[in-house]
């Protein structure tokens, strides 16, 4: 069983559209959406939810105002300024460290498990899918990411699937780290802009730190052919192979509006490029 994770340092480079096309071309993979705070893959693959579970992570402090004597001990020790002057805990600021719970002489503080999202096991026209939705403003998305990836492995083992395709999270922080650790291969989708190059270099540094092999796809290559070349050079410096480039093509947006993968819509410049890249994924990475 192989796990291929598709990420992009910078957002909006086409990572999810590419994942959906790969899912269509692979035809027999388990799909995972790890972009849990702005999950979009479901828009293109229409999962039919078979099972939904609650996701709890961390705790939040709650002060029982009936017991609290307003002695201020908790406010003095809280480093996150989460307790206001009327002794109400702001759940956004509360880190769940429990220091207030331990310091309160009246035992007026309780730590409550925090419901911060849901995760789902679904069926799509391309195969099973595990995905999640973190409630807005919640943290711990790294843990939710780890959870959906683990669930996908369970399903892949049970159903004898040989490939897990993961739509990873953007950035270089906790959710991305959680998306890539232990994966077999990471594919980075980059766009040819100075920001795209900057973010690609940051994300390659992160992934190579975990000693996971990397390849790169450049999307919208013709927006700046010069930077496309610089990206190819930069990828080489990080020991990454460039699998191919995709031209800017309105048909990608058209397919998205129809809520389909671009390779499902007949021939198009972008679709053809994606098919070629998928063939290279199969021969160079998955074989």
């Amino acid at each position: 069983m192989r796990e291929l994770v598709i990420i992009s340092g910078k957002g909006g480079t086409g990572k999810t559209s590419l994942t959906a096309s790969f899912a269509c071309l692979a035809a027999d993979a388990v799909l995972v959406d790890c972009d849990v705070d702005a999950a979009d893959l479901h828009i293109l693959v229409h999962p039919e939810v078979k099972c939904a579970e609650e996701f709890r992570g961390g705790v939040k402090a709650i002060i029982d105002r009936g017991i609290c004597t307003e002695c201020a001990a908790c406010r003095e020790v809280c480093r996150f300024n989460a307790i206001d002057d009327s002794y109400v805990v702001n759940p956004v600021s509360c880190e769940g460290c429990g220091v207030c719970f331990h310091v309160c002489p009246e035992k007026a503080v309780e730590l409550e498990e925090n419901l911060c999202g849901r995760w789902f096991v679904s069926e799509t026209r391309f195969g099973p899918m595990v995905h999640a939705a973190l409630f807005p403003g919640e943290e711990n998305s790294g843990k939710l990411v780890a959870l959906v990836r683990n669930q996908a492995k369970v399903i892949a083992r049970r159903e004898g699937k040989s490939l897990i395709l993961v739509d990873g999270a953007p950035g270089v922080g906790c959710p991305v780290i959680s998306s890539v650790t232990g994966a077999d291969h990471v594919l980075v989708v980059a766009e040819p802009s100075l920001s795209g190059l900057h973010d690609l270099e940051r994300v390659c540094k992160l992934v190579s730190g975990f000693r996971i092999p990397i390849s790169v796809v450049v999307n919208k290559r013709d927006i700046n052919p010069l930077i496309t070349e610089r990206i190819e050079a930069s990828a080489g410096n990080h020991g990454a192979q460039v699998l191919g480039t995709v031209p800017y093509d309105d048909s990608v947006i058209k397919a998205m509006v129809q809520r389909r993968a671009v390779v499902e819509n007949g021939l198009s410049a972008a679709g053809n490029a994606v098919r070629e890249i998928w063939d290279r994924v199969k021969t160079r990475i998955l074989s």
Partner: peptide, 10 residues
Amino acid sequence: ADKPNVEAHW
């Protein structure tokens, strides 16, 4: 083992 065999998980 004399060392860990996987990277840190998150």
